[in-house]
Design a protein around this nucleic acid. Structure first.
Length: 587
DNA sequence: GCGAGGGT
DNA sequence: ACCCTCGC
């Protein structure tokens, strides 16, 4: 008989998703076989805790559904070596744990559950967060898989009390493991304190105006109906506009338009391609417009009202702390980190986000955070000088690279310099830059050469980063957050090139993530200590969004600027732009 | 799973 | 570069 669980683990690692589905379902026998004591009532819990030394922590594993704003937890598995494993069924009141510190694995839902029940959450450690710092590139941080990686084996299918035993085992090794690689401070000062901050933000949620979105949806629908008719006329027949396959048939076979580029499965119909085709035919522009409106309607105008929580009347995103390999947060269900902003129509979505009635939004975003970090880590004088002098950085770059006076830079030169600045942070290739700038790869290469000629220390920094990464197997941020990139040693030039771009981007994007997380932790503390009614609602990578009563705005603005601009001391000043408004579009 | 497109 | 969601 095959060892199905090992096979499952192996195939999972190899991403054989289809094969995994053919593995017979694992038998739940193990769960039934364990007879753990169930602690019914406060006295039973007190007795169990009596066996735990007074100031010792307790390992927990929570059972339930973790969605904000009110996770539903049915039980906690508990473990301490002196008291053994037990199961604690949960009622409506948070359990009294005698002030003990808890050790959990992915505790944010549990913290949120505690908050939802009006309790003040206990102090805690989080083994999933620790495991994320040790290796942020895992696809998931399930207790079983993290245990398998760090301990050689895991609980498999087990009762919560037994799972808590594994949480305990993880915590027996994690502090030392974190310290060994210099991640203990990041854990203690940033990631762990951030957990309850995120829990509170998720619980607060944000108000949206469903009426406004529904009206906008109807408007979009009207426009889409008209566009669809025009598209069918131009195409000489009906087809599914949402199907890239059918669209490709219409464009490249029926209408004989020239295919521009290919995907793995056929001819590409992405926006770049359609824009090119639009020069020779009326249809592609209509397709672009249709796609834009359909995206706004389905992803935002129709979806967001559905996600309004019936009791809070607000939208509660989940901020995931364990997803992005660079250290950034991500947001899901819904993603509130990609609410449109660039186009007029898109901003109608943003305008539907509202503060508490009578309150105002305050949005604070870091100006050029990643370029400032690049200036700091590279020591590039021209960048340092430009930021210290408060200059327009893209204009300055343009002046240097085009060899003209700063005052003589024209808009097009500035735009090219701006794209190049981002390309450098992303570690982009001449080929990638050429696509973005509609240059030939040769022109783009010449441009990059001129950029690096004028920014020798940036070039040296990037080369140093890649070389160190190749030699050590990982790159790191200013605070020591690591990202392992074994592909830097690959013999495959494509794979290695991709790895090198990740290696140049990760320390910069990751340092920005570290910095914003520090600001969040300090802002949460400062708001509490300052007796503010204001709340921190969202983080969008380089921006924090707050809502506050009118009479707190001035104080909040001063506090936010002070906290965010002092989050890290770099060789360049940090600059924060702050706006307030009656909706998120104005703020 | 893929292509596409929204954000940083 | 990093994400998430949508429709097919």
């Amino acid at each position: 008989e095959p060892d199905w669980e090992r096979l499952r683990a192996l195939w999972k690692e190899l991403e054989f998703h289809t094969l995994i589905r053919q593995i017979p379902a694992s038998a739940p026998a193990a769960v039934a076989a364990e007879a753990l004591p169930t602690l019914e009532g406060p006295e039973a819990l007190e007795r169990w805790l009596g066996a735990v030394p007074a100031d010792a922590p307790v390992a927990v594993d929570w059972v339930g559904e973790g969605a904000p704003p009110e996770p539903t937890l049915s039980a906690l598995g508990l473990f301490h070596p002196a008291a053994g494993a037990a199961i604690l069924p949960l009622g409506s009141v948070p359990p009294e744990l005698g002030g003990r510190r808890l050790i959990g694995h992915d505790v944010k839902p549990m913290i949120e559950w505690w908050l939802a029940r009006g309790g003040s959450p206990p102090a805690f450690e989080d083994t999933a967060v620790g495991a994320y710092l040790l290796n942020p590139a895992r696809t998931n941080y399930k207790l079983d898989e993290v245990s398998a990686e760090l301990l050689g084996e895991g609980p498999g299918l087990a009762a919560p009390g037994t799972r808590a035993r594994w949480v305990w085992k993880l915590w027996e090794m994690l502090p030392r493991a974190l310290k060994e690689v210099g991640l203990d401070t990041l854990y203690e000062e940033v990631e762990r304190p951030l957990v309850p901050v995120l829990a509170a933000m998720e619980r607060h949620g944000i108000r949206v105006d469903p009426g406004g979105l529904e009206a906008f949806s109807k408007e979009l629908d009207g426009t889409l109906v008209g566009l669809t008719r025009q598209i069918y006329t131009l195409a000489g027949g009906e087809f599914n506009i949402g199907s890239p396959k059918q669209l490709a048939e219409v464009l490249f076979e029926k209408l004989k338009l020239p295919p521009v580029k290919k995907t793995k499965t056929g001819y590409s119909t992405d926006a770049d391609v359609l824009e090119q085709l639009a020069l020779g035919h009326e249809l592609p522009a209509k397709i672009i417009e249709h796609r834009t409106l359909a995206k706004l309607k389905s992803t935002y105008a129709d979806a967001l009202p559905e996600l309004i929580h019936p009791s809070t009347r607000r939208i509660h995103t989940s901020f995931n702390q364990l997803v992005a390999a660079t250290g950034r947060l991500s947001s899901s269900a819904p993603n509130l980190q990609n609410i449109p902003i660039r186009t007029e129509l898109g901003r109608r979505i943003r305008a539907a986000f509202l503060p508490e009635p009578g309150w105002r939004f305050l949005a604070a975003d870091y100006s050029q955070i990643e370029l400032r970090i690049l200036a700091h880590v590279s020591g590039e004088e021209s960048l340092l000088a430009a930021f210290r002098a408060g200059e327009d950085i893209h204009q300055r770059t343009a002046a240097e690279v085009f060899g003209v006076n700063v005052t003589a830079v024209v808009a097009e030169q500035r735009a090219i310099a701006k794209t190049t600045n981002f390309a450098v942070i992303y570690g982009v290739t001449a080929f990638g830059l050429s696509n973005q700038l509609s240059f030939t790869p040769k022109q783009a290469q010449e441009f990059l050469d001129r950029f690096f000629g004028r920014h020798a220390k940036v070039k040296a920094y990037l080369e140093r980063t890649v070389a160190e990464g190749r030699q050590r197997g990982f790159v790191q941020t200013l605070l020591g957050r690591r990202r392992y990139i074994p592909e830097l040693q690959s013999g495959n030039p494509n794979l290695r090139g991709f790895a090198e771009r990740m290696a140049t981007n990760a320390p910069i994007q990751g340092t920005a993530a570290d910095l914003v997380k520090i600001a969040m932790v300090r802002m949460a503390k400062a708001l509490a200590e300052g007796g503010f009614k204001a709340r921190m609602l969202l983080q969008v990578h380089d921006e924090l969004l707050f809502e506050a009563p009118e009479d707190e705005l001035a104080r909040l603005e001063a506090l936010t600027r002070e906290v965010m601009e002092s989050a890290m001391a770099l060789d360049v000043p940090l600059k924060v732009d702050i706006k307030t408004g009656a909706d998120w579009e104005q703020a």
